[in-house]
């Protein structure tokens, strides 16, 4: 295909946009994470002084140090927040996988003419506001909330359960909010599966359960992997769910970053928290991107 200058510029436009508004900001965060907190506007030092020429640039780099990172490494609050984010995201991903797989499996086996409607029903909540869906759980999980009212009235419990403001509420929130992200990729792989493989397995004497574990599950692995990435990676840095549903002892790194930035106004420290979070996520993000590219080329 012949390329004109105009079409080259058009193609370069989104590239440039992302370089300026996605990549460059990370370099700035990195720089500020190496700066010191200061009583100035903006509240950190040093600032790059280009008018002083080379001396200004040298002074700028000389003033950068890893103080914030050593502080993060020494304060157990931050280490615990990272570890607890990993734990909460990991457990939630596992629960989401179990629930999501059984729903995706049922969707793939539902009569063909129902499927578009059912898939649509799974996607629809994803379109409605995330904040509102998290908010909806507050009224249900509160001590005097609807879940406790229902359980008390049927006599299943004698005392109201404390779910709100605990890690359990955070698990429920994450599973609920991210469930469609797990169901859809798994459903996509299950739907494409060749059913004659299952018949072949049955002909060769395998039970339904064995056929599931030996045929269906391995074939749906790409969907499982994609779904787990889509839930696990954003869940680690989640802010809204731990803030609204979790309690004061729910430690998650996204919330720590928010508090450091908005409440303590410590921008350099918040930037250091962000850089470490990014380092934590870079491996899963690169793996996710590789998998997406592979699938795109594969199809």
């Amino acid at each position: 295909m012949t390329r004109t200058l105009g079409s080259r510029i058009l193609v370069a436009l989104p590239y440039l946009w992302l370089l300026v508004l996605f990549l460059a900001p990370f370099l700035i965060v990195l720089k500020i994470s190496l700066s010191d907190l200061a009583v100035s506007r903006p509240p950190y030092t040093p600032h790059l002084d280009l008018t002083a020429g080379w001396a200004g640039i040298k002074a700028f780099f000389a003033a950068l140090d890893f103080e914030n990172y050593t502080f993060l490494a020494e304060d157990s609050l931050y280490i615990n927040a990272y570890l607890s984010s990993l734990k909460i995201a990991g457990i939630s991903t596992l629960i989401t996988l179990l629930i999501g797989y059984s729903i995706a499996y049922a969707l793939a086996r539902a009569p063909r003419r129902w499927r578009p409607t059912l898939v649509m029903l799974v996607i629809l909540p994803f379109w409605t506001s995330f904040l509102i869906r998290v908010y909806a759980w507050i009224g249900i999980l509160k001590t005097e909330g609807l879940l406790n009212q229902a359980l008390l009235s049927i006599g299943l419990i004698a005392e109201p359960l404390t779910i709100m403001n605990t890690n359990t509420a955070v698990y429920i929130g994450i599973v609920y909010s991210y469930l469609p992200f797990m169901i859809l990729p798994i459903y996509a792989t299950l739907e494409k599966m060749d059913e004659s493989l299952l018949e072949a397995a049955a002909d060769l004497g395998s039970s339904r359960l064995a056929a599931f574990f030996l045929v269906t599950l391995p074939l749906s692995m790409p969907g499982i992997v994609a779904g787990c990435f889509l839930v696990f990676i954003p869940a680690i840095g989640e802010f809204v769910i731990p803030d609204l549903l979790g309690g004061s002892n729910t430690l998650m790194i996204g919330k720590t970053l928010w508090v450091e930035f908005f409440n303590n106004r410590d921008w350099p420290l918040a930037s250091a928290v962000a850089i470490l979070l990014l380092l934590l996520l870079i491996v899963p993000i690169v793996l996710f991107q590789r998998q997406q590219m592979k699938q795109e080329i594969g199809t």
């Binding site: 954003p234 802010f239 979070l277 993000i285």
Partner: peptide, 21 residues
């Protein structure tokens, strides 16, 4: 990479980095 990363990037990081920019 720049297209796929924001899809899963925690919002707190995107928000903080854009603000600092």
């Amino acid at each position: 990479g720049m297209i796929y990363a924001p899809l899963v990037m925690p919002e707190v990081i995107t928000g903080l980095s854009l603000l600092l920019l």
